[in-house]
Design a protein around this nucleic acid. Sequence first.
DNA 1: ACAAAAGTGTTTTGAATACACCCATGG
DNA 2: CCATGGGTGTATTCAAAACACTTTTGT
Lengths: 234, 234
Amino acid sequence: MEYYREDSAILLAVDCIIFGFNGESLQVLLIKRDFEPERNKWSLMGGFVQPDESPELAASRVLKKLTGLENVYMEQCSVFGDPKREPNSRVVSICYFALIDTQKYTHILSEEYEANWFPLQNYPTLIFDHDQMIASAQHRLRIKAALYPILFELLPEKFTIPQIAALYEGVYNIEFDKRNFSRKLLSSDLIIKLEEKDKENSKKGAFYFKLNTAIYKEKIMSFLRYLPSWFPEN
Amino acid sequence: MEYYREDSAILLAVDCIIFGFNGESLQVLLIKRDFEPERNKWSLMGGFVQPDESPELAASRVLKKLTGLENVYMEQCSVFGDPKREPNSRVVSICYFALIDTQKYTHILSEEYEANWFPLQNYPTLIFDHDQMIASAQHRLRIKAALYPILFELLPEKFTIPQIAALYEGVYNIEFDKRNFSRKLLSSDLIIKLEEKDKENSKKGAFYFKLNTAIYKEKIMSFLRYLPSWFPEN
DNA sequence: ACAAAAGTGTTTTGAATACACCCATGG
DNA sequence: CCATGGGTGTATTCAAAACACTTTTGT
């Protein structure tokens, strides 16, 4: 029972903007394409949506293929569909951004793909409109992270408050008052203090914390910002 | 020069969630489908993305076809792509929401399509996943309207403060303190007071205002909410 | 000792909220 | 003249921002 004419079928792809945090700056994971066109140029990891597969599933599959990771925080962002975005084919691409804890990314980077982390401030020229994709994902990340504590997805099990501060500073490219930041975070009940201290990065040492997953999951909470009571949740 | 195999090409559609405001409640414009499948059932207005056309252009085309309007505020929202979302075909649909001033919508509604405005609180059952589409667009509208004054797109040239208040109350389904709302709006410099009063809806009458388009366009401003200085703009 | 980062206490600022009260007018 | 919605003035609250100061420890 086909009702529609198939003559305007289009290739539909997903591209993954994979964000990571190395403790210092926000990074994005890029690959060197091993196929034509644009072979050997830097690009986002992507793939085609298969006939029996939802775009979300395609994005997860593509992410797993590169990183080996599953159950990763992913979010749909913009669709890029200009007819001329690829010179030789008509491909519409749905972008997803993923947030991963780089410590879980144990894949040998250059085994299958020549993949590499690059700082968001300074990554190589990418094929097609992939730079725009990153820019738009970054913008969305900023909006979302201001409303919800999703940046914790980028952190390992144990982390220190100065590390989170550095992460937020990296995402927004701004300097916070670390003292106020620390207090605000503590008062949110989102994090649980551990015994251990990180002595690597300072003389005094900063306490490690872990995420209070109950509060993290249950409460779709306002976080860094003041939100009026009528603001829509989730 | 074709590089990709075309065997996984997919039908790509756009669906338009068209919001309007009749002075009382937020409305959505729906059509009765005049083609199979699901002929004569209520649905969003949609169409297929053509090979030479971007999704944005397709959405504008579809909107114009129904309403006759161009240069309308539109925004991409979610993609719906579950393989089983349409029972008989594989169609991935990109949603757009549009905000239109219903007074400009002069098209004779039932001429080509049997179109009708329905209140968002109470519209008929729709085909496929169109209810989800509306819900997701509504959510996005709420978020966006809290950050930017986009709801003015729904208002005619001349409007009163009580009208805007009603609009915001409709969007968030909440009651504001009209006195504070009014003051906040005035202090934003977004609106310019006119001489004339609307005497229809109250004995005292409410002054008409017009949008200060310079401020509206130029300033991507925080509006109803307190926004920290580091919050990403636009 | 002292530099340097971690963290606490306290004050100031300003937006959001609450609400008393005046204004204009049609019935 | 009074009920009704429009609108102003003023007080309160509470989080954000600012910043003085203490704590810890490697060098």
